[in-house]
């Protein structure tokens, strides 16, 4: 006589949607482009900021 576990397992196996696994739909495409940062040691886009006086900070109190 088969064990209870065995019976359970057989029932579960029958429930498996094996057809879906045999003819799977395509997953959604994943698109992400490789990026490039500016060359190292190249002049910063904010160079002009370095030449301007620092932004005044509000005084406390």
């Amino acid at each position: 006589m088969p064990s209870k576990d065995k019976v359970l397992e057989e029932v579960r196996t029958e429930n498996i949607d094996i057809e879906a696994a045999l003819d799977p739909a395509e997953p959604d495409g994943v698109f992400r482009d490789s990026r490039e940062c500016a060359a190292l040691a190249l002049q910063s886009g904010g160079t002009s900021l370095l030449l301007s006086p620092p932004t005044p900070r509000p005084k406390k109190g």
Binding site: K6, E9, E10, R12, T13, E14, I16, I18, A21, L22
Partner: peptide, 14 residues
């Protein structure tokens, strides 16, 4: 794996 699952897995891997 249980027998049924193993069998199903073989069917999927084909």
């Amino acid at each position: 794996a249980g027998e049924g699952v193993a069998r199903a897995a073989v069917r999927v891997l084909g």
